[in-house]
Write a protein that binds this DNA or RNA. Sequence first.
DNA 1: CCTTGACTGTAACAGCTGTTACATGTAACA
DNA 2: TGTTACATGTAACAGCTGTTACAGTCAAGG
Lengths: 184, 184
Amino acid sequence: MAAKRREQLLDATVDYLLENGAAGLSLRPLAAAIGTKARLLIYHFGSRDVLVSSALSVLLRRIQLAFLEMHSHATLDRTLIGFWRWATDKPNEPYLRLFFEVHGLAIRDPERYGQYLRGAIESWKELLSQRLDKRRMTARRREELATLIIATVDGLLLDYLATGEKERTTRALTMFLRTLKKEE
Amino acid sequence: MAAKRREQLLDATVDYLLENGAAGLSLRPLAAAIGTKARLLIYHFGSRDVLVSSALSVLLRRIQLAFLEMHSHATLDRTLIGFWRWATDKPNEPYLRLFFEVHGLAIRDPERYGQYLRGAIESWKELLSQRLDKRRMTARRREELATLIIATVDGLLLDYLATGEKERTTRALTMFLRTLKKEE
DNA sequence: CCTTGACTGTAACAGCTGTTACATGTAACA
DNA sequence: TGTTACATGTAACAGCTGTTACAGTCAAGG
């Protein structure tokens, strides 16, 4: 098993990123934290950049799994509220924190983080469009709606992460969903 | 005039940040770009962190000025659309890019960027609440509405910056405003 | 047993970081 | 003219960065 050790290091790196962020990552502190040496990280991954982008892929996969679990809910409302609950649950906060941190970095440095960002945006859209498929509306309108819903949830999560005010942001989300329902 | 040179360096630093971002800022390249030495940046500002947070304050002031210019518009709709036009205008893009980049960094590192983030969020809320004051609604409802509007515009701007798709995101914004109007 | 290949340890490379000590300039004011 | 305050220049500090050269260790397969 050549790739086994690599897999372990990768998982440990993801956990480290969730705790410490991606902006100031450097090999030696990371290696010390996960019980290895910078030398070996380079050996297993080839370079720092490969390590980071590999770790972000794993991160994305984990978030997508959380998305998929919400699919069991009956209505779009319940799916969104379910995801909101998951995202604002304290133990899951690091996922969203890292998500928006990398989002900010990617806007500036698409070469390094672009692939992750495109994948992340795509996964949001896919979830939403699957939910909206069932309704009778033009593709154009469905696109508008998906864009609006994703943006609003993103914006509210950003607010929540910055202020920590769960109650206010949750109220704003339910108000948004109520407004959407009237619209139909 | 002791503070004159400092002011010049500060403005030049803001422009440099708008072009090059804040995540990987380091003194020597910055100094070279704006025609000075790292030595003098430390001399005028005391430390790197003071320089960065001073520059972000100037940035915030500039964005607030753009906000205030939109106040002349008659309705809330027109104010928001006016700001959206300003923010998605190519030459102004760096402001929002930097805004969200720092937002991402601040979530991770509140000590360094927290002050800027709180000020930025406050200025958004102030603009909105001034606009909503005139309407008859409970303070609680006004808070929900302001939170929702800010979050949606933020989320759409984030989408626009990542994808560059101005037409789709603008359509989503107008759909949002139309929905809000029905709600009243 | 001996070789092969995957893995790890030690140490170093050049280059970068923020910051500082010390010396020099420069202009205003007594 | 001498003093004072602000500004600048030159070099260096210790500490960090990703990466690499070289020398091992260790278990599996001939």
